[in-house]
Design a protein around this nucleic acid. Sequence first.
DNA 1: CAAGATTGACTGTTCAATCTTT
DNA 2: AAAGATTGAACAGTCAATCTTG
Lengths: 148, 148
Amino acid sequence: MDPTKEQTNVWIGISLAQRELHRAIDGALREANLPSLKWYDVLWELDRATDGLRPFELKSLVLFEQSNLSRVVQRMVKERLIGEHPSRKDGRGKVLMITDSGRELRRRMWKVYGPLIRQNIERIEDSFDLRVVAGALSVLADRKSRKP
Amino acid sequence: MDPTKEQTNVWIGISLAQRELHRAIDGALREANLPSLKWYDVLWELDRATDGLRPFELKSLVLFEQSNLSRVVQRMVKERLIGEHPSRKDGRGKVLMITDSGRELRRRMWKVYGPLIRQNIERIEDSFDLRVVAGALSVLADRKSRKP
DNA sequence: CAAGATTGACTGTTCAATCTTT
DNA sequence: AAAGATTGAACAGTCAATCTTG
């Protein structure tokens, strides 16, 4: 059945807000000669995972297609942002680890990324409770609560 | 300066919610052998504009790069979803108009798209006021209210 | 010269097929 | 046979250069 006007407005709001912020952030990174948000996500996950990650684990965290992830990893290895080590436990696989320069790059990217999050989200704080907004969005972000 | 934890949660919520719904919708369209959401947006704008649209006007509505729009339009013209007519007023340009089969395709896409919006957004309605959520998001979507 | 639009070359993403190890 | 991962071919999107008309 058709969605209500309010339901549609929420979906349009999510789409436009995401598009606007993503554009602003990616644009600022590019102007600073830094890589895109996708690379940031990869660096962030690898920075958190102190024992490294297998490509298939990383894939489910950042939601890349496996073949795409394979190529993104290749590029990042070439840039010495991450390193590959054969897995001792599983002969098929390898383990990805962030390098020092990968960590350093992530920090530099955050100096651009972080303030933009603040400046943008700040603008709704006067009129709205951020915890309410985040709570509503988190329901949608959770694929597990949706019927198969 | 760094964003607060709540600010970051809102941005992550927007990103994940958008990604999840977009995946669900694009996946359902694909399973039904229908084109992607981007084509839907183009069809929607051209369906609303009863006198047709110039490519540069459409470009600002759907936020495509001009060169990209040029190619998307080419593909859609080839599929007979939209038609091109030389502009009488401006020798440089042309006017794009949706065709009957374009209109019909948009309706078929909406039969998949609409219910998915409803089913997904519905899930937050019990606990949250949709007008509040939409209001907060609309602040972010509006690029004009942001400092240059 | 500026605005509307297209094209060629390049980058990045996806699909299907493949290879290896479990 | 299934899971992890890669590769080649096709496709979409972006940048810079170009063309035409205002």
